[in-house]
Amino acid sequence: MFPTKWQTAIMTTLRERGRCTISELAQHLNVSDETVRRHTRALVEEGRLVRAHGAVALPLAQAEPPFSRRLSERTEIERRIGRAVAGQIQDGQTVMLDGGSTTTFVAEALLERRGLTVVTNALEIARTLLGRREHRVYLAGGAFRADIGAAVGPEALALIEQFRADVAILSIGAIDATDGLMDFDLDEARVARAMIDA
Rank of each mutant, 00 (worst) to 15 (best):
D187G: 02
I77R: 13
Q88P: 01
T178D: 14
T8Y: 08
L71I: 06
R41V: 07
K5Q: 07
A156C: 11
A122Q: 00
A151Q: 06
L25I: 09
E45Y: 00
D197R: 09
R133D: 00
E155L: 13
T104P: 02
Q62H: 14
M195E: 04
G153P: 07
L43N: 03
R113N: 12
I125T: 01
D179A: 14
R145Y: 11
T102E: 05
A57Y: 10
T102W: 05
H135P: 04
R190K: 13
L116A: 02
A86I: 01
Q90K: 13
I89G: 10
M1Q: 08
E16K: 15
A158D: 15
A158Q: 14
R17V: 07
E76L: 02
A109Y: 05
A63W: 12
G141W: 09
I125Q: 06
G100A: 12
P65Q: 15
T104W: 01
A86H: 10
A52D: 14
V106A: 08
Q90Y: 04
G82T: 00
A26H: 12
G142R: 02
S101Y: 03
P154D: 14
G47Q: 11
E73C: 06
F105D: 03
E64F: 11
L170R: 02
H53A: 12
V167L: 14
D187I: 01
T94E: 07
T4K: 04
D185H: 09
I22D: 11
A198W: 03
L29N: 02
R80W: 06
V137P: 01
E155I: 12
T13M: 14
L130A: 15
H28Y: 08
I22K: 11
T12K: 13
Q7G: 02
Q90C: 08
D187P: 00
